[in-house]
Design a protein around this nucleic acid. Structure first.
Lengths: 135, 135
DNA sequence: CGTTGACCTTCCCATGATGGCAAGGTCTAG
DNA sequence: CTAGACCTTGCCATCATGGGAAGGTCAACG
């Protein structure tokens, strides 16, 4: 399989596959005489795995660890679970942060009637208090 | 006020203040003979505004628009509200996306007992099905 | 056999918001 | 006068990804 084929089949762009190879996330693939990268079914599995992990928001660094665990038959599932839980905390934090922004913004936005007049509680809220000095 | 003073007072790092100046988010401040940037109360207000907007997750580009509206006494609050609502949609989307990841990951993680054995539904879930080929 | 179009290669640059570091100039207090 | 705190610019790094250019390769079709 050429890179375009695995890219399509795995859902990982060719660009990214090359990048993953360069940063060592995946191994160097063999090349044809012309220098074309050649991939096997096994590589496709790996790329699909990476794609799934990306879809769950794991960082490439975490995926590196996940792949190591995947390849390691002597792993303990506890190691995997710990990684997952750690990422879960991260997701929770990010959701919390965004939700806090959302709530604050909703509060501001609700207090603004959104008409033709310039008075706007949103801007006032951002400014801390009162209208700005003339600029 | 030197840059360090406004930085401390506004909560925006000196580094970022220089950056905001460079990208045109804020104007070029006057300089002392030695080349030190000099700031007024007005600038402090602006930086606090920017800081608040960043805290709500607005992009620098959006903040640019917000500042223009803030300075524009002929604005309509509708314009401001539209910007806010647009950002709100963005936040909602991001929260949705992260929550979807979270939910999927929770489901996977719950199915993994996390013990000493290598069998791990998390890895299997990422792989799509079954254990990987030997690598 | 030749050309065309789809594919591949590498290399460089861009994103967005921020931080770090280095080399050098300035200012202030002791 | 000097030490230390502050300022300047400039370059590089993050993180994951995309874009594009310049050039090589391959397969199919006439």
């Amino acid at each position: 399989m050429n890179i375009g084929a695995v890219a399509k089949a795995s859902g990982v762009s060719a660009k990214m596959i090359r990048h993953y190879e360069q940063i060592g996330l995946i191994g160097h693939s063999p090349r044809t005489e012309a220098g074309y990268r050649q991939y096997q079914e096994r590589d496709l599995h790996t790329l699909k795995f990476i794609r799934s992990a990306r879809d769950l928001g794991f960082s490439l660094d975490q995926i590196h660890q996940l792949l190591s665990l995947w390849y390691d038959e002597k792993r303990s599932s506890a190691e995997v679970k710990q990684l997952a839980e750690s990422h879960l905390s991260d997701l929770d934090e990010r959701i919390q942060a965004l939700s806090a922004m959302r709530d604050a913004l909703v509060r501001l936005s609700e207090s603004c009637c959104g008409d033709d007049r310039p008075d706007c509680p949103i801007l006032e809220g951002l400014a801390g208090h009162g209208p700005p000095d003339v600029y």
